[in-house]
Design a binder for these strands. Structure first.
Length: 277
DNA sequence: AAGATATCCAACCGCGATAAT
DNA sequence: CATTATCGCGGTTGGATATCT
């Protein structure tokens, strides 16, 4: 026996939300808080499935949404993050306060793609359209080192039934190709040499406080002169010849923040401070 | 002015990971 | 341990609106 269904799929409203439905949802969340989307619709008196409520709240009703046009800075940041993360819209959105993944995704598909194409840049690879692709066989070992992003759990006991999650993190030791753009990182940002070791995103789950645990995040950043930027809450300034600068790298062992770099929920690396020659 | 086409974006769909039973 | 539901994500769709012919 599994769980019991949260709601009947029939008799549910679909399509555009009415003003009244919005008001009910906002009012309910204001007084009871976010979460438990399963039971929310019934409790709030909405004929919607929880999934629909969650989407409506996150993408449209949340009070901290910025809305309005994207600024030039936001454009640049999205492009930089996309070149590093690919279509990981939720991760990109985590670095743009007040913007949702859906909003950024739409914006990318309708504006930025076109903008890049008009500049002769392939939006998928962030390389020049005319530039020939590098055949796999020509990759050097050094390319491989840059390409491989190693995700390693700090708890190797939990090897059973562990799979890669959607963020590309794996919960057992193995080397994975996280996103092909990283292969080209050396070419895009010749000064940027990232070697990342990232722990899985353990979080304080509401239903299982026992999973609260010490987080270990080891993220090592190098500048072209070999200066390693890593330590607990390290401030890493570049020195003259280095052309990558970090405003702040916060590598924390705290369980509250700083658990993963690619989760980008922390101040680990502010991409807005990245400058590429 | 009217129809055709393009653009935008809210909402849906399907899937993987994970939690509950 | 198996089964089934929920959550959260990325991809896609379709209706509303804008622009073009």
């Amino acid at each position: 026996m599994g769980r019991s269904p949260c709601c009947e799929k029939e008799h549910m409203n679909k399509g555009a939300w009415t003003k009244e439905e919005d008001e009910r949802l906002v009012s309910y969340i204001n007084s009871h808080g976010e979460g438990c989307w399963r039971s929310l619709p019934r409790a709030a008196g909405l004929l919607r499935c929880g999934k629909s409520c969650r989407l409506r709240w996150i993408n449209y009703l949340r009070p901290d949404l910025k809305r309005g046009n994207f600024t030039h800075d936001e454009d640049d940041l999205i492009i930089k993050l996309h070149s590093l993360l690919g279509n990981k819209w939720s991760l990109i959105a985590a670095r743009l306060p007040g913007r949702t993944d859906n909003e950024i995704k739409n914006y990318w598909n309708t504006h930025i793609k076109r903008k890049l194409l008009s500049k002769g840049i392939d939006p998928a690879t962030h390389r020049s359209i005319n530039e020939p692709k590098i055949p796999k066989s020509t990759k050097t070992e050094e390319d491989q080192v840059v390409k491989d992003v190693c995700f390693v759990t700090e708890d190797q006991k939990q090897t059973k039934n562990q799979k890669r999650n959607r963020n590309g993190l794996v919960c057992k030791e193995e080397r994975v190709e996280y996103y092909p753009v990283l292969v080209e990182e050396e070419k895009l940002c010749p000064d940027l040499n990232l070697e990342l070791k990232i722990s899985p995103p353990w979080q304080n789950k509401k239903h299982d406080q026992r999973r609260e645990r010490e987080i270990y995040t080891a993220s090592r950043f190098y500048t072209e002169n070999g200066l390693e930027c890593s330590s607990d809450t390290a401030k890493c300034q570049t020195e003259d010849s280095s052309s990558i600068s970090y405003s702040s790298i916060d590598i924390s062992t705290s369980s509250s923040v700083g658990y993963d770099f690619l989760g980008l929920k922390t101040r680990i690396l502010d991409f807005r401070s990245l400058e590429m020659k």
